[in-house]
Write a protein that binds this DNA or RNA. Structure first.
Lengths: 342, 342
DNA sequence: TTACAGATTGAGAGCGCTCCCAAGAATGTC
DNA sequence: GACATTCTTGGGAGCGCTCTCAATCTGTAA
């Protein structure tokens, strides 16, 4: 069968195309009887308006894009992204939006995908995961006039609408927690170089140490890149400097760090205490349950969708941002329980 | 500035809309000089054809959907799905397709999403992750005429185009491996009830045992549901029956099982040997490196895209399927190395 | 010179919808 | 009863593209 059109339904009921369109779009200006008849016809035939025609006429597609830049390489290793995606999907479903996924894996992808994203009226708006500060994608995206919400604080943050958590504060409270427990050689394993997330978390770490009167030692700052393996390596490189506690910028890296410590015959938290970041499901399941900073990952996604919808409907001046709360989840890896007993 | 149209470019170069359209679509019937001029104008203006108008006129959207049914609840816990998604995304990028993601989280979602998927001409085709056998979504999808490729063998497999691995053979080889190593009380932890994946893997397990002359003991078959926690529980419930080896239907469940064994003071592989399934990155990183069946996850995705494109272009009769190869990756958890030494 | 094939181009008719405008029906007001 | 007001409805003009068909323009052979 050929696809049904508004016109077909109209003919069937004996009204005009316009009236059927009104019913479909929930316009109030239709008499109750006619509305009922039309609705019945739509139900029986299973008619559904053609999306392309709708978009063309209304200049709205009801599709938003989620862009994960090249610099976000850990989409399929770090549970953070699937969870974020899930949050976004839920937000889309709730608002009758479709979600287009743009996973940029290399330069060619970027060149191919960009025009599809920015022009061409195929998307009403986009959500971008903020990656590295110097990611050229961000600039290309700003240049295109499409409404855009950044997930995570972008570098030039006053030009963008974004959703983020207060990474400085979160990292501060993680580090402060370790200080309060009496550790004195507190190291950190950072996220990948050049992202605001990483910068902010380092800042929070430094703030807490400074405030407590500690000297920040570069040898106790080890660079990871959000992967399990990088956590392993970073921990290994930290060991010669004898830290007694480590704040680690992601739970995935923390699990790598734990592995490194096990390989070296060290115990958590007796020999070295750890605090992670994210509170991924794994964090509560490792043998040594991870003390960590819980991010409202799903909420970041749904809040992002919400803001984007508002932008699409009401314009985006001036740029807005929402900073969501984090929470310190105390489990075993920080040694809090151990120390209490003493 | 208002969005540019074909007509604008045409006017600028002094040709007709049709000619510009020909250039944009790479039609051969354009004189080289004109083509060059038009291309130049397009380049300078940054013109990009409107997707909605294109879809409307051509009845093609160059968008495919990825549907993850409600019964696939582990999208954001099991790395399998992100990796699959990645494979699909790469396939899409390579073929200039956009990917729409439909994460069905509950019944209302399904009702809202279905019409958007099946009619409305917003998708050229869909990829569906096969979930439970009785998933009503599958039927609804078949009824809609949209080209469709199932990832994983669907229940009524002769009605569908699908991509799968030979789960029976893979599970057979995993179990056989344990048998060959001399284990005699080989248990299994299955995937979630009612999926073909689970059924097939059980079948392979049973086949191997039967072939070796073992009696299949129901008490040695424990039901999981692909989550870490379910692996933990399943392993715990298996312990009273004293298995000496376990074939586990996913690596994620295997990591739960390892945790259960650690909690019980048992050692892998000395006390109990394990073989997992999937070969997720984690498998090589656990303290006891996991012997497992490697699935070509990314390839399943890209092959799915390939088949779907073919279906869209050339119709889908008769249904086709591709069965990809798996590979047994021998690491430490099966005790092979231990046994060699003896 | 005429004819004809082949290449190149343009015009026109949609694709199925939205949205504006005006016509007509129904209701209210004095 | 005449007029204004509101509600309901239909028609038409696009949205920006594709695709068919016919027109024009070459070049070549008769």
């Amino acid at each position: 069968m050929a696809e049904l059109t508004l016109e077909d339904i109209a003919k069937q009921v004996g009204v005009s195309r316009s009236t059927v369109s009104r019913v479909v779009n929930g316009s109030p200006n239709v008499s109750p009887e006619v509305r009922l008849q039309v609705e019945e016809a739509i139900r029986i035939t299973g008619f559904h308006p053609n999306a392309a025609a709708r978009s063309l006429a209304s200049q709205r597609t009801r599709v938003i894009g989620l862009v994960l830049p090249r610099s976000v390489s850990s989409f399929f290793t770090d549970p953070f992204f699937p969870q974020l995606t899930q949050g976004i999907a839920v937000g889309c479903n709730a608002n009758d939006l479709s979600l287009s996924l743009f996973l940029v894996t290399n330069k060619e992808d970027e060149d191919k995908i960009m025009p599809r994203i920015s022009r061409s009226g195929m998307l009403d708006g986009i959500l971008v995961q903020s990656g590295r500060a110097d990611d050229p994608l961000m600039e290309r995206l700003t240049n295109s006039r499409i409404p855009c919400v950044v997930l995570g604080r972008p570098f030039n943050h006053d030009c963008f609408n974004y959703i983020d958590v207060d990474n400085v504060k979160a990292a501060y409270s993680a580090t402060k927690h370790l200080i309060d427990l009496g550790y004195t050689r507190i190291a950190t394993i950072t996220g990948s170089h050049g992202s605001t997330v990483t910068l902010d978390r380092i800042e929070g770490y430094v703030n807490a140490l400074t405030e407590a009167g500690f000297v920040v030692q570069p040898s106790l700052i080890s660079k990871g890149e959000f992967s399990e393996t990088s956590g392993y390596e970073a921990m290994k490189s930290l060991l010669p400097h004898k830290p007694d506690a480590v704040f680690i910028a992601s739970d995935l890296m923390a699990s790598g760090a734990i592995r490194a410590l096990q390989d070296s015959g060290l115990h958590v938290p007796e020999d070295i205490a750890l605090v992670g970041f994210d509170d991924i499901p794994l964090a509560a399941l490792t043998k040594i349950r991870l003390t960590t900073i819980r991010q409202p990952i799903t909420q970041i996604g749904s809040k992002g969708v919400e803001l984007l919808i508002d932008l699409i409907e009401n314009g985006s001046q001036p740029p807005r941002n929402f900073i969501l709360d984090t929470e310190l989840i105390v489990r075993d890896s920080c040694g809090a329980k151990l120390r209490q007993k003493k």
